[in-house]
Nucleic acid binder design. Structure first.
Lengths: 191, 191
DNA sequence: CGAGCGCTATGACGAGCGTCATATTCACTC
DNA sequence: GAGTGAATATGACGCTCGTCATAGCGCTCG
């Protein structure tokens, strides 16, 4: 019932707050408050403490973001890679616009703030990125791209998105993300 | 004498610590300790508090990283853009290797941790990125690339570097950075 | 010599942090 | 309806944080 809801809401709120303020600057009290969840359940649901919450938040947001990618992999008339990538950029464009350039990527935040300090977090972030590059790589290969190149291009696309997200946040404008989207599309067209 | 040294060492240490642990997780006491600088001078040298220190650290590291780019712009036999970019990747490869994948980019750390909270930091990070894209863009344009495209490609290169840095840190291996370097070089070859 | 100033030393302040110990309430089964 | 374990409430713990107030150096210049 509301019980499992409250646990899930906590994980979700953690991910949302992390991507705006960073992991370290986000306190557990703020998380449960944002989630409208009881503070008393923190030690019950997350006995592993903040580290566990960070890991679960990373996994949650990774799944959330990987869904559309995996979905388009299984779609009947498989959409061309160009379209899959374009939609990926669109989602981040919308995120930046909706939060007035305040939000970034929760996973990047976890890497920057806690990646060097906790092996568990480092592992979670590495897996999270693979959930993005994996489907993308398969989509590219199925689109006719040589396997080794598909692997590299998938890494390039995700790297470019992550980096452009940071630059657009810093500049408070969409130019980096737009420019990167344009050039990546060009690259995919020339396949 | 040692006086100005100590101030500069503090800024330098701040930048170095930020890129490993993030801005928020790095305390002022740790910074002066790392810099072997007197704690008492903090309020004297940085009356603006931690925010000022973050801004100066961002400016310092941005200059440090922009130096080679600007230098190759003024070199007599101007090196081809491909080489300039390759050397850029090499420097970050070395950084990752030397710190066992613990270090990332101080500027990215500042954006993630404090970019949304402080206008001064946001401005400093935006300017820092421009100090990288600017010379790169001019190098590309001088290499024969159309101006609008040179601007986009410069943004792509820096974005890709920043993103690959994050992914390589998370995975503790060089594959993302290597893959991105390869693909970017391919893109520049096809110019 | 001594006044002034750049720099440093030191300790305290209030706030927030993550964590824990200890109840208390709730839901559900025998 | 008693009992049982999951879920929540509450407050305190020790620690670190950024900042500040206050004082003490060491140097130069009048």
């Amino acid at each position: 019932m509301t019980t499992r809801d409250s646990r899930e809401r906590t994980v979700r709120s953690a991910a949302l707050l992390f991507r705006e303020r960073g992991v370290d600057a986000t306190g557990m009290r703020q998380i449960v408050e944002h989630a409208q969840a009881p503070r008393g359940s923190l030690q019950h649901h997350f006995p592993g403490g903040k580290e566990q919450l960070v890991v679960e938040a990373v996994e949650w947001i990774a799944g959330k973001a990987a869904e559309p990618l995996e979905a388009s992999l299984e779609a009947d008339p498989a959409p061309p890679p160009r379209q899959v990538v374009a939609e990926l950029f669109d989602r981040f464009r919308k995120l930046l616009r909706m939060t007035d350039y305040r939000a970034g990527c929760s996973i990047a935040a976890a890497v920057v703030d806690a990646g060097s300090a906790s092996d568990a977090v480092a592992l979670a972030t590495a897996n999270a990125f693979r959930r993005w590059t994996g489907p993308l790589e398969r989509a590219l290969a199925r689109g006719g791209m040589e396997q080794a190149r598909a692997s590299r291009v998938a890494l390039l696309v995700i790297s470019a998105v992550e980096g452009a997200l940071i630059m657009s946040r810093a500049r408070h404008d969409m130019e980096p993300l737009d420019a990167v989207a344009t050039e990546i599309d060009l690259l995919l067209s020339a396949s």
